[in-house]
Design a protein around this nucleic acid. Structure first.
Ligand SMILES: [Mn+2]
Ligand SMILES: [Mn+2]
Ligand SMILES: [Zn+2]
Ligand SMILES: [Zn+2]
Lengths: 139, 139
DNA sequence: TTTCTAAGTTGTAATCATTACAAGTTAATT
DNA sequence: AATTAACTTGTAATGATTACAACTTAGAAA
């Protein structure tokens, strides 16, 4: 089950991160947009509601949220950074046709890995690319 | 077993990609440096041998090699792009302490994925982060 | 509620990686 | 050796991210 905006807000408070208007707006945006948006997308959308919002603040806020563990960075492409408020372990599939990024469940325990004995693993990212079903049927 | 420089050279020739001096230098560098170098690392190293080499050429060449399937891009970090001449499917582990990127074998078939039925998967990247054994013992 | 101030926000400028482009050079075919 | 499309180079343009100083505010304390 997804964390609600209220729960996320409490997590911030518990970590002594100030609940500024801008941060709450970004957090709310992330919790309601599961599309793995870029900084630009967030900025363009939120600007309509908060005209004084600065892009620097988006960068700062996402960095704060990342350090607090409330968002994760998705680097599936080498030319754009995307953000994700789904922080549980899951894989990402990017359709190279429609460019959409899909989440998928994955059993990380099922990974048969050789050569990682004695490595302390803190973070796992799985990125797939290909064609999504919709684009497949449309050819 | 690794592809030798000679084999890689033949692959280029077969794909009608011209064997320019610069391309061969970059290709040779990649086939002898399995450290997942950045453009800057390649440039700085090769410049010593080929003083007229341009960074633009490194970019162009890596793009050509990527399209020819002779190198792969590693986007394990959001702030630097690395290149890999090991093109078989394998995972990458980055030690957040010494910054080294390690290869590891992985059985991609063992992935238990839910929700990717009817998705056509062309590319799989697995990125882990943590602490390598050396850095662990040094604390 | 008012006061206080460390922390947050903003706009602008600086930085850094990557790409565009035009002029000179070369691989490889003839 | 001549030819030419493709390649390389240096420089300039672009675009994303970061640095910074002045202004503003969240939240604690009085
Ligand atoms: Mn996701
Ligand atoms: Mn590798
Ligand atoms: Zn699609
Ligand atoms: Zn290490």
């Amino acid at each position: 089950m997804e964390k609600t905006f209220e729960k996320l807000k409490n997590e911030l408070k518990n970590k002594n991160i100030r609940l500024s208007h801008q941060r709450l707006k970004v957090l709310e945006y992330m919790s309601t947009h599961k599309t793995h948006p870029t900084v630009d997308m967030i900025y363009n959308d939120l600007q309509k509601e908060v005209p004084t919002l600065s892009k620097t603040t988006i960068y700062n806020t996402l960095d704060t949220l990342k350090n607090a563990g409330l968002v994760k960075v998705v680097t599936i492409e080498d030319n754009e950074v995307r953000y994700d408020s789904r922080t549980h372990e899951h894989g990402h599939f990017k359709c190279v046709s429609c460019e959409e990024i899909f989440d998928f469940d994955i059993k990380f325990d099922s990974f048969a890995t050789k050569g990682l004995d004695n490595f302390k693993i803190n973070n796992k990212d799985v990125y797939f690319k290909g064609i999504c079903p919709d684009c497949s049927t449309k050819q």
